[in-house]
Design a binder for these strands. Sequence first.
DNA 1: GGCGGAACTGTCCACCTGGACAGTTGTGAC
DNA 2: GTCACAACTGTCCAGGTGGACAGTTCCGCC
Lengths: 194, 194
Amino acid sequence: MTGTETAAMTARPAPGYGEGRQALLAAAVHVVATRGLRHLTYRSVAQEARVAHGLVAHHFGTRDALLEAALEFSLANSVGSISAAPGSGDLEAIFAGVVEMVQANPDDQAFQYELILEARRRPELRPHVVQVYATYRQALRNELDAAGIRADDALVHLVFAAVDGLVFQQVCLGDPDAAGAGVKRLRDLLRPLA
Amino acid sequence: MTGTETAAMTARPAPGYGEGRQALLAAAVHVVATRGLRHLTYRSVAQEARVAHGLVAHHFGTRDALLEAALEFSLANSVGSISAAPGSGDLEAIFAGVVEMVQANPDDQAFQYELILEARRRPELRPHVVQVYATYRQALRNELDAAGIRADDALVHLVFAAVDGLVFQQVCLGDPDAAGAGVKRLRDLLRPLA
DNA sequence: GGCGGAACTGTCCACCTGGACAGTTGTGAC
DNA sequence: GTCACAACTGTCCAGGTGGACAGTTCCGCC
């Protein structure tokens, strides 16, 4: 336990009565994002949440169920608008702020990528992933339409995958400037389609 | 252990004398890709490789070292040309066959994505990841140049991230048709730049 | 204050894991 | 055949884990 972690432990207050479940969900996201799925144990997540490790079994029953609940929690907390000005048709507003958001809080993205990979092995996670991807793609289609771009499935799929890739690389290799420049170039490529 | 796995166990021959190290590397890739990093243990990888688990310590010393060696192994085995006709300038040849390759062997890609995420937590993995990404980007730049597209860093970064995202989604959600259509649309977007 | 139920704690236990290590086997050189 | 060394095996052990569970605490209602 490094000094940094000690400080973090001291700073995080123990959850109040009735707040344990929420604290465990947030803790699971953090542990997975920073240490990987391998280190998500009853004890590590409980320690992160400042509760006893038996509470994991109490609220979630199993580690797997905790993970599924944490994925739902993370996705519910991260779904936002893909445009800074929804419905405006302003291409510059599409994906505006994404890079900054990822830079400010890479843990949620990292957690989600970890769980998306895990969904290959855990069928019960898959519907959540599919649902969120579909939601984002539909929103993107709407924004492209508003911008005067007739977006077929392939274009929507590509554009969303491009941003997915930019974010993945930003999270993993940490170069927000390159990600931002990539988003700009993406808009440049889309502009002539309007 | 399911019937399928039993058959796989029966089918995979024990490595010959002196082949254990290689077998363990390939086994590590397979175990991580199919079961996740969490289930990569001395015993699971040894079982997959049909050797005794002590051989992991013998050849690699630690689990971490095995992982690093497996990443190098995987990257070395997967780096190929990004164009079906390198240097030809043929846009249709860029990324040709990528979707089919991923579909035929998703394990390598999945393994790499797992390790790329792990690189966030394991500094010693990072140089390998950075190196391969850089290699691919340089190759992409060369192909775009040959196609008459003056590709700045941002465009190269975007195009590569787009394919990264398409492959990631293909590996995780398994829709090669959408990935293929995405690649085509990517070429469509690039064509006017030539 | 008493009660019931939910939230929470901390102990227990069977099993698993990383890795050390002594002993065995295989190989190539002489 | 002998020797040296690398590859390999399988046992051992301290520590960690998932999860069960009895007991404690908290809370809202009466």
